[in-house]
Nucleic acid binder design. Structure first.
Length: 510
RNA sequence: GGCGCUAUCGUCUAGGGGUUAGGACGUCAGAUUCUCAAUCUGAAAACCCGGGUUCGAUUCCCGGUAGCGCUACCA
């Protein structure tokens, strides 16, 4: 008997397995900044893993740093996630609302002897650290308060001395784990220091927050940036002290700038929101980010979200950091724009134009204008790198007020006869009937022949007159789409402009 | 400094004990043409260095180097 397992069946089995295994992952941004592309990729990989496995994605907001966390940033992060299409199944859960829980855990760790109060002040520690550094000695918390007797401890507590709570690292031995991406990792306990769990102001540190939450939320797989590899052994020790099951860890290589330094503002835009504003499509950004550290099977690079979900595999994630290549993103974005249906593209362009003060929709807009608008958008579709191009280089297609681009003027308006040629062409265009591709082309070529100039000269000069740009679609397509009245007017205006500034200076037309 | 991790074209990467080391972005050239983009064709472009294991290492091991990360009462 031949077992028949359709791909659909396999899909189903995987989802069932995911549910049975109770696969639970989380994305835990800190609202101390906007969602940056690195965070977005972490979110994406968590999301893909959850969807692939039929598991659950939890969103948690790590807002324990009261000074740096801002509620409006949480809102912005949520918006960015939604824009990218990364939905979550549980949460958002706010750490700031779980303070009691962290206190309880810190207490339990203390009563089991895995943690202790530390009365050292930040200033004391700071100076000890500075001294060690000056003497070029490696610094690690020296354990002053670890050695305190019960009596001393109680006395200091009774005095009301502010105390942090530190985790007690075992004196010897080592901790290791099998990272799903990096493989076996281990560190000696002697290289770890007794880190702070609870600040003296009662707020938990990152370590306590994550572990407490991941335990309570029954997180099975921790997928996060590689900058947390070094933190993992400490956290595993906490799981053990708490007698909680240890999740599977998978660390993701970092995203770097072109100079191979960690991506930061000085490399330009780093936030998801900034790319959105720059006219990048969410699908393109998701696709690009997915490929930064992971390669789907096959050689295809433009992959649908369904294919990503189907093929995603933590084990296939790269171990080395990746440079964020804006050029490739731009290419991918143009690729996605090109494949948008008119129904998808039109509203995006309208939004962009409106944002740039070039509204297309006025109350008196007729069906014909509506159709013309659509034709223009589609004509330009294959040349758009971002949606923003519509309000930038393509401006002349949507508004009569545009400037003649200096480079274009220099390149195509240098011939002295241009003004009169454009003037003559205006007349022919006014007379062209029918005003279509063939009709206008014939009119132009006839004129060129009569004047004894190459058609190309007239075509290129006209393109500048009609669009202000040296670069635009095929001239006759532009002519048809702009319409007879505009074409005639713009040709005349260009001729006038040339006559008024014989030196071909590049002052704006309007 | 200590500890950890990483190392294939400029960039993202595939591959893997014996390959013409594959793809993509970018670059360059050609085709096309009415400019540019797109498209098509072609080209240049990489296994960090040194040892070891092996008949044979880019691949496995060790060392070096470089880069990154952690080394906070940040996350």
């Amino acid at each position: 008997m031949i077992p028949i397992v359709s791909s659909r069946n396999r899909e189903l089995h995987r989802v069932i397995a995911g549910i049975m295994n109770n696969i639970r992952v989380r994305f835990a941004p800190s609202p101390t900044g906007y969602l940056h592309v690195g965070g977005a990729r972490t979110a994406l990989y968590n999301w893909l893993f959850a969807r692939h496995m039929g598991g659950v994605l939890i969103l948690r907001i790590e807002d324990t740093d009261v000074d740096r966390s801002k509620p409006e940033l949480t809102t912005a992060i949520l918006e960015s996630l939604e824009w990218l299409g990364l939905n979550w199944d549980e949460g958002p859960i706010y750490q700031s609302q779980r303070l009691d829980r962290y206190h309880a855990m810190a207490l339990s760790l203390q009563s089991s002897g895995h943690a202790y109060p530390c009365f050292c002040t930040p200033e004391e520690l700071q100076s000890k650290r500075a001294k060690a550094e000056a003497e070029r000695r490696p610094w690690k918390y020296d354990g002053t308060c670890r050695a305190l007797s019960h009596a001393d401890r109680d006395r200091l507590l009774a005095e009301g001395r502010p105390a942090a709570v530190r985790f007690r690292i075992p004196d010897s031995g080592k901790t290791s784990f099998e990272d799903q991406v990096f493989g076996h990792i281990e560190v000696e306990h002697r290289d770890l220091e007794d880190f702070v769990l609870l600040r003296s102001d009662g707020h938990p540190t990152y370590h306590l927050g994550v572990v407490a939450d991941d335990i309570d939320l029954r997180v099975t797989h921790v997928v996060r940036g590689a900058d947390h590899i070094s933190n993992t052994p400490k956290q595993i020790l906490m799981y053990q002290a708490l007698e909680a099951p240890i999740p599977v860890f998978a660390h993701l290589p970092l995203i770097l700038g072109p100079d191979k330094q960690r991506l930061s503002k000085r490399h330009g835009a780093t936030s998801v929101g900034a790319y959105r504003e720059q006219g990048v499509l969410p699908q393109a950004l998701v696709n690009f980010l997915a490929l930064l550290g992971w390669t789907p099977p096959g050689q295809k690079e433009i992959v649908t979200i369904e294919e990503m979900i189907r093929d995603f595999d933590l084990g296939a994630v790269s171990k080395s950091n990746a440079v964020f290549d804006l050029e490739k993103l731009a290419w991918m974005n143009s690729e996605y724009i090109r494949h948008l249906s008119p129904e998808q593209l039109l509203p995006l362009v309208e939004r962009e134009l409106a944002g740039a003060g070039l509204p297309v929709r006025d109350p008196g807009m007729g069906v014909q204008e509506e159709e013309r608008f659509k034709q223009i958008v589609l004509l330009l579709q294959s040349r758009a790198r971002t949606i923003q191009d519509y309000a930038g280089p393509f401006r002349a297609f949507f508004n009569d007020e545009f400037a003649y681009e200096p480079g274009a003027v220099k390149k195509f308006w240098k011939d002295g006869s241009i003004a009169s040629l454009l003037e003559a062409l205006a007349e022919r265009m006014a007379a062209a009937n029918p005003f279509d591709l063939a009709g206008t082309e014939a009119a132009l070529r006839t004129l060129a022949e009569e004047k004894g100039v190459k058609a190309g000269l007239l075509i290129n000069a006209s393109r500048v007159a009609l669009t202000g740009q040296a670069v635009a679609p095929s001239l006759f397509e532009v002519i048809v789409v702009l319409g007879q009245d505009r074409v005639v007017a713009r040709l005349r205006r260009a001729a006038d402009h040339l006559r008024s500034v014989p030196d071909n200076s590049t002052s704006p037309a309007a």
